[in-house]
Design a protein around this nucleic acid. Structure first.
Lengths: 219, 219
DNA sequence: AATAAATTTTAGACAAATCTAAAATAAATT
DNA sequence: AATTTATTTTAGATTTGTCTAAAATTTATT
């Protein structure tokens, strides 16, 4: 099954929306891909004809097993390249997305497997998201929202809930990164803000909004 | 100036043909790109409109300074990726071309510069072809056919005249690679074969056909 | 339940890149 | 020099992916 770059973008978009919604709507996908609903409908027909999509008009849609398998593989390539860009080429983790969007479309199996081996078969990308393995298997991530982390429990930032540049800017300012060690010291009920401590640093305050955008795993 | 992948393929093709022919013809390019002459003509008009091409109909064509600059940059990206694939991902040098054809279209300046630095600013790709630097400057290659190398002159294999897998197989068998040090010890007029020595190894014989497929530079 | 609002689809147009077949031009041959 | 042959261009069609505007359908509201 050979897909155009555009078809790949569509099924990847649907895959991501399906992580949150059982069934995806035309407008949701239009908004994610920044295209008009009319364009989405056109492509849905093509993907249905290729048996990658279960779709009845006006009824929403979701990927078939085959569609999902292909999507997972695109996600695999995307995250492997992100890992490469950060670990080998010294990109910042907030700079890699656009370039990985292009690299992910190169489908050579040999390339992907050799890249994976070169990188040491990493299981999480620089944002903390799991990298599907060659069979599409995804290491489940036992993530806790920072807002739910018990007091005085050492943990490590392992993923962020959004990739907006405003969030990344704020995290850079506060010197918080994937891998940063944190402990929650206090909770303030009034505004649900947290006082946290980074290793060897004075305590700082995180707003509810920020804490909810951060995921941790205990260590 | 943003080019589509297809436009990039066209100007890269023209660039390569210009290395041999002063002015390029529609049929030459059609044959190189495996497209019909009609398609070539269509694209020539677009490239002329973008001022990348000097073209008068029925009169052949060649790149403008701007077109050449862009082409050299594509060649730079292609050869950097080939170097990466061979040196880092352990591809064989006969396997890299197709994948590099895809990777070369990713234009991110940051990516290319960081890749170049990661690779240690290599000046020649795995086939011995020069990699243009960031300003488009190409290290001229003073290559000598192995058959013309004077006796007892230390030299280094720097390029091969063909990328056929049968040649690669033979070179692998004889443990000859890009970078291998050689000296010609004897020449046999009867069949124009050579006796050569690789560093710390007993002398071996190369046929005329093989020697002519190898290029060296003295060291 | 009828109407208004939102969502989704269709119809028709357009740009990019390609093709085939026919016409125009240039080059080669008699 | 006239004619044949080869090359190149044009004309018109096709595919992919996109759009706008209008129509169809579903959902929400009075």
């Amino acid at each position: 099954m050979t897909l155009t770059y555009t078809e790949e973008d569509y099924i990847k978009g649907i895959y991501h929306l399906q992580q949150t919604y059982n069934t995806v709507s035309t407008n949701q996908l239009a908004s994610l891909l920044e295209a008009t609903p009319a364009s989405i409908t056109d492509m849905l027909k093509k993907l249905k004809a290729k048996k990658l999509l279960n779709y009845e008009k006006y009824k929403g849609f979701h990927l078939t097993a085959e569609g999902k398998k292909l999507s997972v593989n695109i996600v695999r390539r995307h995250r492997l390249w992100e890992y490469f860009l950060v670990e080998k080429l010294q990109f910042g983790w907030d700079e890699v997305h656009e370039v990985a969007e292009e690299l992910e479309h190169i489908t050579s199996k040999k390339l992907v497997e050799k890249l994976d081996a070169f990188l040491g078969h990493p299981r999480f990308d620089p944002h903390g998201d799991p990298i599907p393995d060659n069979n599409g298997k995804i290491t489940p991530h036992i993530q806790l929202n920072l807002i739910d982390l018990p007091l005085n429990t050492p943990a490590e930032i392992c993923s962020v809930g959004s990739q907006s540049s405003s969030l990344l800017e704020l995290l850079n300012h506060k010197h918080i990164n994937i891998g940063t060690r944190v402990e929650v010291k206090r909770r303030f009920g009034f505004d649900r803000s947290l006082e946290i401590k980074l290793k060897n640093q004075p305590a700082i305050t995180l707003s509810q909004q920020l804490a909810q955008a951060l995921f941790v795993k205990t260590i």
